[in-house]
Design a protein around this nucleic acid. Structure first.
Lengths: 220, 220
DNA sequence: TCGCAATTAAAACGTGCGTTTAAAACGATT
DNA sequence: AATCGTTTTAAACGCACGTTTTAATTGCGA
């Protein structure tokens, strides 16, 4: 609640350092220096480096969730619109625009190399989020569709979004900078990904990825 | 060429250790012990830890590429079939079946957190692979389709495959073990992903993800 | 068999880190 | 003002690691 306690300043500094340097390269000395607190404060408040890391991850996830919440839907919101907004929110959380995406960097590390901090993250955030997506998709598919098919489509949605975050650095080597800047904004990617899924499910907006979903979004 | 020199044994051990422990946690002592060579051999052959790491990454990529090559296509091979086989090969490389996937683990680390070892990997492997996929897709789309649209569809293919590797640990927390075992084999995932793209592009196999592409693959 | 270069071996060095300790400063309560 | 629990401070410890050094061993051509 209080925002300038010693604990909070350590958590903030630790998050940034762990995100940019990784668990091993980030040092307690560096974190404490950035936080402007004494070296022993970490031991005093968190016990050791590992427990500090776990708390920093939780802290990052809470922050991130507040910054890009899902919109509220009514019962009459059509599933296509929900899907489009879901994809947009997911991309916003992952690409963390605007500002420094240190929270997401930390979370990405945890996804690829899960530690003890992972379990809380999955149960508090990923599970419910995944469930919402499954519900949207099952509305759009024939009733009686097998669970694993719905799951596979859901993972197709998440996978496409995830890729742009995880491979951000590689992307700049595969695609020219100018093209990335003009054609790969969050809105454009969101429109394309939604489009792939909609067309795959038999809803058929035109092949060109931009206009239809962007228009749908404007209408919310 | 020779397979049991000191250098080769160090490279092998280094690959496994870097993959399973990460760059920092892997120790030169541990690598040399596993390789059965003296501690100073790393300095003698590779100079320092960083250069050893770079060589280990290159070594891993070369190994992996030989283990799952793309099939040879003739001019009459239909693009749908090429796409299906491309997806299958990509999944095989990423999920590294059968055997211990240490090569892929190493490469994944490098993708998410590129170091100096990355550039070689992108130019020698990712660029050409990405180009092949773009060629296949442009065959399947209206001529004159904008480059960035083709790129986006290509990334949709790669993104879906990538996800299953990068989030393997998380997946086991989102989906029950039994379902994963029976419905998420490489063949089944490959069929689903190919299906999403084919349907998205206007080729329309039925929604159920299994049969059509599996059948197509049997016919090669 | 000698000599020379390439390789392997054992031991030590220096450093940076996580952690601990013990004392000092602070703040509320009486 | 005195006391006592809480928080902050400065300094040190101990250890594991990357790297270096120096010596021993090997392999081979003359």
């Amino acid at each position: 609640m209080n925002d300038d306690t010693t604990q909070e300043r350590i958590l903030q500094a630790a998050g940034e350092q762990f995100a940019s340097q990784g668990y091993d390269q980030a040092t307690i000395r560096g974190i404490c220096q950035q936080a402007g607190v004494n070296l022993a404060a970490v031991n005093y408040y968190f016990g050791d480096k590992e427990r500090l890391y776990i708390e920093a991850v939780k802290h990052a996830r809470r922050l991130r969730e507040k910054q890009a919440p899902l919109p509220a839907w009514t019962e009459s919101t059509p599933p296509q619109e929900k899907l489009a907004q879901f994809v947009l929110t997911l991309l916003q959380r992952m690409l963390c625009e605007p500002g420094d995406p240190w929270q997401t960097r930390l979370i990405m590390r945890e996804i690829m190399e899960p530690t003890k901090a992972c379990e809380e993250m999955v149960h508090e955030a990923f599970q419910p989020f995944f469930q919402i997506l499954n519900d949207i998709l099952s509305e759009m598919m024939p009733s009686g569709t097998a669970t694993h098919v719905i799951h596979q489509w859901a993972l197709s949605v998440i996978g496409q979004c995830f890729y742009y975050r995880a491979n951000a650095k590689i992307l700049t080597m595969l695609i020219e900078e100018e093209e990335l800047r003009s054609e790969f904004s969050i809105d454009q990617l969101s429109a394309h990904i939604t489009n792939v899924i909609l067309r795959g499910l038999g809803y058929c907006p035109p092949l060109s990825s931009e206009t239809p979903v962007a228009a749908m979004r404007r209408g919310r």
